[in-house]
Nucleic acid binder design. Structure first.
Length: 807
DNA sequence: ATAGGGTTAG
């Protein structure tokens, strides 16, 4: 508005001829673009300047029109650019070329091409061809760019250095082999274009791009690129930044640093590239050191610097420093750039201040997609899933990233079914399914125990060519692991082109959870042997694998080396695993001793592990002590009651067991002796857990009868047979998948001995929505059946039936 | 040419 005002005053007497007025407007526009960084505000201001031209009777000629088209397209007002262009009665080649560039900048190569095609051959020139070739290469269509280049040659237009530059940019998209680069270099030299800096720069970036292709040798190609760079007679800013960012992108920060240190006048872009390189590699303190050096060198940090530094603060948990940067930006900039605000949002939520993050968002005048996605992630990561859902629905536009965040957020918060529904919607709506979206959907299947759906997703993943994706691969390893299909998990792991710590941890967990303790330990050792540094999760995983397999000494060893060798301070969760390890084999007093000497105040998981051990090993006294602690520590007492009752029962002290049960009933806890069932074809497998020898087991039989009647009433299973699996607690424990078919199959094969305990893990879909505490079958209150028929689900719960369809 | 939003392991 300020501009309009000054203009009204200024336009009047002194400016009379067209050229002066045009010049005045040109200056205004130029100023405007320089002053404002927000696309939306620029476009609004340009529109007002433009309106002012028209109302004041000024008729812009072709040069000004082109300038306006150009500005509109650069500041996301393609519609205005097009409207202007359409009003020109017979646009000349310059106007057309501007419009081609406008469409190109807006990501519309097809529209650009239609303008190009309507341009008669007689008026076409090299610049026009260049614009169209650039349109293709900027929009990632290397092949089309090259085709047009050939067409241009065929029609005898003379390519210039800019043509070569954009063709090389197009080739950079395609080249994935060293030979491509060498051949291109020859072609460039032959054409005599090797004297142009811009062409050589483009050639260097072909090498750089090619170096990051998995098929090529990065080291070799970066060497060639740097040779080209150093052999240039003189280098411009772009040459320096291309080579430095090339090294940064190819993860060779030392080499990048060497080139950087050799710069006499260090460019802001180069500083930024180095800083962002360090941040991406997780070397936050190096990044901050660079930032300090840059500051001391008198450089003024721009929005790129600030976003990188804020992102470093967010990931390194340096909240105070981040706040200082915030204060600095607020002090020095009149208008904080949207990307800086986005980084701020992330800083706030990663430091646990979701509401402050939201405040930054609410204060943002011009929000972009990234801003919305950042807040969405904030809600999701804080587990505030309802707010996330609302926010997701409020979003003015969503890209595939927003969908992905929402899908994995739902999956992580136990809403696997909703997550899959969302993934399906994504497919139906034709939104691009990236590998992260697949990872989220596969995780949902892991949570649900939906083996079939997961397998279908795996097939789809291969079909889409995402099977080399790290995140999707990791999700698959976990999914197959949780579903108990160990071989598949292993196969995915082995065929992944590259694996990381997450992959190793996932496979170790898969083995450990399903009773392959020895194999899990072997795999862990292999991982150490390959010089992969384990983290706290690796130790949690391997110690629990040892615990399930009864490898007590191994488990203790890992607990010890975690701190002595790997400098990881054992957390309370690690202690809980250690207690579990000891209690499971009956070394209860040792466990007690660890509890007494540990540096934490023992929490519920610790006492729970001890109590479970007491139950198995019939140690009533210690069990009572643990139960008392649990009553103090937890609001929900049902699990503790059951464990305690079973501890008494295991020791044959039925009366006391009955007393606990009575107490439990009196307090309104509805838990009968454990009974869960799974229907497979015409057989219902009923698992009885707990003190099945106790006279109270009659309750279970009564319940069964009730169930039989209920099912018959629904007309669902007239010819069902019941198989009772009696599972009195004993020492042996089998880790099983929760996937119903799988569970039954394993059951059949293993022929579980009388007295085996079934342990069911996290993904308890078969048991239904029985809250989150479904860790042990003895705690499970299953009142639900899922019958799967192809892709359809019939879901019976408390006498009600619902159907689901995933695909 | 540089920046900001994502995923997977217990």
């Amino acid at each position: 508005m300020v501009y309009l005002f000054t203009m009204k005053n200024a336009v009047k007497p002194s400016l009379q001829n067209h050229a002066d007025i045009a010049n005045f407007y040109a200056v205004q526009l130029q100023l405007l673009c320089r002053r404002h960084k927000h696309a939306t505000s620029v476009s609004a201001l340009v529109r007002s300047v433009h309106a002012n031209m028209i109302t004041s009777g000024f008729r812009p000629r072709s040069h000004m029109l082109n300038r306006l088209i150009d500005i509109y397209s650069k500041y996301s007002s393609l519609v205005y650019a097009k409207r202007l262009f359409d009003k020109i009665p017979q646009p000349d080649v310059v106007a057309r070329t501007t419009m081609i560039a406008a469409y190109s900048a807006s990501g519309e190569p097809k529209l650009a091409r239609s303008v190009f095609d309507k341009t008669p051959l007689s008026i076409r020139d090299t610049v026009c061809y260049n614009a169209m070739i650039t349109a293709y290469s900027h929009n990632n269509d290397g092949h089309a760019a090259i085709e047009l280049f050939l067409d241009m040659r065929w029609k005898s237009f003379r390519p210039d250095e800019y043509t070569y530059t954009s063709v090389l940019a197009a080739l950079a998209l395609i080249a994935d082999h060293e030979m491509h680069c060498r051949q291109l270099q020859c072609a460039v030299v032959k054409s005599g274009m090797a004297n142009f800096k811009c062409v050589v720069n483009a050639l260097i970036s072909v090498y750089v791009r090619c170096a990051s292709s998995p098929l090529a040798s990065s080291l070799l190609l970066m060497d060639a690129a740097s040779k080209l760079f150093y052999e240039m007679p003189e280098r411009d800013d772009l040459s320096w930044t291309t080579i430095i960012t090339g090294y940064v992108k190819n993860d060779d920060l030392d080499a990048a640093r060497k080139v950087f240190d050799g710069m006499d006048e260090k460019l802001l872009v180069a500083w930024n590239a180095m800083i962002s390189g360090y941040v991406h590699k997780g070397l936050f303190f190096e990044a901050l050191d660079m930032f300090r050096k840059m500051y001391l060198a008198g450089m003024k940090p721009d929005e790129f610097t600030c976003t990188s530094i804020l992102s470093a603060c967010a990931d390194a948990g340096l909240f105070l420093l981040g706040k200082q940067v915030h204060a600095y930006v607020r002090r020095t900039e009149e208008e904080i750039h949207v990307s800086v605000c986005n980084a701020l949002i992330t800083l706030y939520w990663k430091c646990g201040r979701v509401d402050d993050a939201r405040k930054v968002f609410d204060n943002l005048l011009f929000k972009d997609l990234v801003s919305w996605n950042a807040v969405l992630s904030a809600y999701v990561s804080a587990g505030r899933i309802n707010e996330a859902k609302l926010f997701f629905n409020e979003m003015p536009e969503k890209n595939s990233l927003a969908w992905t965040v929402m899908i994995s957020g739902l999956a992580q918060n136990g809403l696997g079914e909703d997550a899959l529904k969302l993934f399906n919607q994504m497919r139906v709506k034709g939104i691009e399914l990236c590998d992260y979206a697949f990872a989220g959907a596969i995780t949902s299947c892991a949570v649900l125990g939906a083996l079939d759906t997961g397998c279908q997703l795996h097939a789809l993943l291969i079909q889409r060519g995402y099977d080399s994706s790290l995140s999707a691969g990791n999700a698959l390893v976990t999914f197959y692991g949780r579903s108990g299909v160990i071989e598949a998990a292993r196969n995915v792991f082995l065929t992944m082109p590259c694996v990381d710590l997450v992959s190793w941890n996932a496979l170790v967990a898969a083995l450990g959870q399903h009773g392959y303790g020895v194999e899990a330990v072997e795999l862990f050792e292999q991982m150490l042997h390959e010089n992969i540094t384990p983290d706290r999760i690796s130790f949690l995983t391997v110690i629990s694998a040892c615990s399930h397999a009864g490898l007590v000494e191994k488990g203790r060893h890992y607990f010890n080396i975690m701190h002595s060798v790997y400098k990881i301070k054992p957390g309370e969760d690690h202690y809980a695993r250690l207690i579990d390890l000891l209690s499971r084999v009956g070394r209860l007093l040792e466990a007690k001793e660890v509890i007494q000497n540990m540096p934490y105040k023992p929490g519920a998981p610790i006492w729970e592990a001890l109590l479970a051990g007491c139950r198995t090993h019939k140690n009533v006294d210690l069990g009572v002590e643990a139960a008392e602690k649990l009553f103090e520590l937890t609001p929900q007492h049902d699990g503790t009651y059951i464990l305690l009752a079973n501890t008494f029962a295991a020791a044959g002290r039925w009366d006391e067991a009955a007393k606990v049960r009575k107490l439990m009933r009196d307090q309104g806890v509805k838990k009968e002796p454990g009974c869960s069932w799974i229907k497979v074809e015409n057989t219902v497998h009923v698992f009885l857990v707990g003190d099945t020898a106790h006279p109270e087991i009659q309750v279970v039989y009564n319940y069964l009868e009730e169930l039989r009647l209920k099912m018959r009433k629904m007309g669902y299973v007239p010819d069902t047979q019941y198989v009772l699996h009696d599972m009195e607690t004993e020492q042996k424990e089998y880790a099983l998948s929760t996937h119903s078919e799988k569970l039954a199959v394993v059951f059949g094969i293993l022929k579980l001995p009388r007295g085996a305990t079934i342990r069911v893990f996290k993904n308890l879909r078969i048991c239904g929505d029985c809250h989150s505490a479904l860790k042990f079958m003895s705690k499970v209150e299953a009142r639900e059946i899922i019958v799967r028929d192809g892709n359809r689900f019939h879901h019976f719960r408390d006498g009600e039936c619902s159907c689901g369809n995933y695909w």
